[in-house]
């Protein structure tokens, strides 16, 4: 178990190092950072001096090592656009994105899994067929369209929910939270639904097909022959056996929710990292883009690690046979 975790952590470190290299390459190969930093009337000699001072004439491996060293200490440099430390810029935006992603994921799981179980247990019932058809729409509509439709309906026509921003937030140190005010919670509803709808339909369809498969297995038939209640069979035996693929997909999708909240944040003017990233791309603000890249990959790697550990919890066959076979 411990060696498994260490192994996975080492793999994760490798992935992060590779992503770090790509982020580093952004600095070196996407334009000349000196030109971005200095004014138009700076002489060539001053540029050379600055280059030397910033260590840009050192060999690439040395520069890379320095870059990684800074990143590990949380130093991502200064934003080209606002001249603020990148770390601070991102930390300011991080809570908004993480809170939105968490709400979207809970919405997708909390609605998707029960619907998947229902449609898997009663595949012939008309509500299941209807849900299947509707989910196809959910899976094929683009996110921005869903967001705009929701805004039109709930913000413009009904005027019950806000269409932009986070509403009121509460500060906890550097973390700002919208979970503790009514306005903050109301502001979360539309973006969360928009961001989570695709994941919801995906999870529902996945759980459904897994349930259909598991319900045909011998151990479910045998559980019936043992006289277990339907609840014990459906939720205790069948659902748990669908969990491994569901955890895999949910883990990947959670990473995607965080990384690709960009569109939803743009539609709802959500002051999160996605919006920061869009602004940075417009200004070619490479330090911010590089930091964003690293942070998102760190999320993905962490979530994947958590998923691998969850497999262990769910499936005893992966834990290695302690008793051996007789």
């Amino acid at each position: 178990m411990i060696s498994f975790v260490l192994n996975r952590v080492a793999q994760a470190a490798g992935v992060l190092l590779a992503v770090g290299f790509i982020a580093f390459s952004l600095f070196t190969y996407v334009g000349d950072p000196i030109n971005a930093m200095v004014g138009q009337d700076t002489s060539q000699q001053e540029k050379e001096e600055l280059r030397e001072k910033l260590g840009l004439n050192d060999p690439a491996p040395l520069q890379f090592a320095r870059f990684i060293g800074n990143v590990v200490q949380g130093k991502f440099g200064l934003s080209y656009r606002t001249s603020d430390p990148v770390g601070r810029l991102i930390l300011e935006r991080l809570p908004a994105t993480l809170e939105l992603a968490l709400c979207a994921a809970l919405f997708a799981l909390g609605v998707g899994v029960p619907l998947g179980v229902y449609t898997g247990l009663y595949p012939r019932h008309w509500t299941s067929r209807l849900l299947q058809a509707v989910s196809l729409i959910g899976i094929s509509l683009p996110t921005f369209l869903i967001g705009i439709l929701l805004i039109v309906f709930f913000a413009v026509i009904l005027n019950v929910l806000p269409s932009f921003g986070r509403g009121e937030t509460v500060k906890f140190g550097w973390w700002t939270s919208g979970y503790f005010t009514v306005a903050g919670l109301k502001a979360l509803i539309l973006p969360s639904v928009t961001l989570g709808l695709f994941q919801l339909t995906l999870i529902m369809r996945l759980v459904r097909s897994e349930m259909l498969e598991v319900m045909r297995t011998d151990y479910i038939k045998f559980a019936r022959a043992r006289g277990l209640s339907n609840r014990a069979i459906n939720y205790g035996h069948a659902l748990k056996n669908t969990l491994v693929p569901v955890i895999t997909v949910t883990g990947l999708q959670l990473g995607a929710i965080i990384a690709f909240a960009i569109i939803t944040e743009t539609v709802f003017s959500w002051p999160g990292m996605g919006q920061l990233f869009v602004q940075s791309v417009q200004f070619a603000d490479i330090p911010v883009m590089a930091a964003y890249l690293l942070l998102v990959s760190a999320f993905f790697v962490t979530i994947n690690l958590a998923v691998d550990l969850l497999y262990y919890v769910v499936d005893p066959r992966l834990r290695g046979s302690t008793g051996g076979r007789h």
């Binding site: 297995t217 011998d218 151990y219 038939k221 045998f222 559980a223 022959a225 043992r226 035996h237 748990k240 056996n241 769910v314 499936d315 005893p316 066959r317």
Partner: peptide
């Protein structure tokens, strides 16, 4: 009425002791 099925390898739920 108890029941015993053909394949003991698949009659038991693999996730529970």
């Amino acid at each position: 009425i108890g029941a015993i099925f053909q394949d003991p390898l698949t009659s038991l739920n693999p996730l529970y002791s």
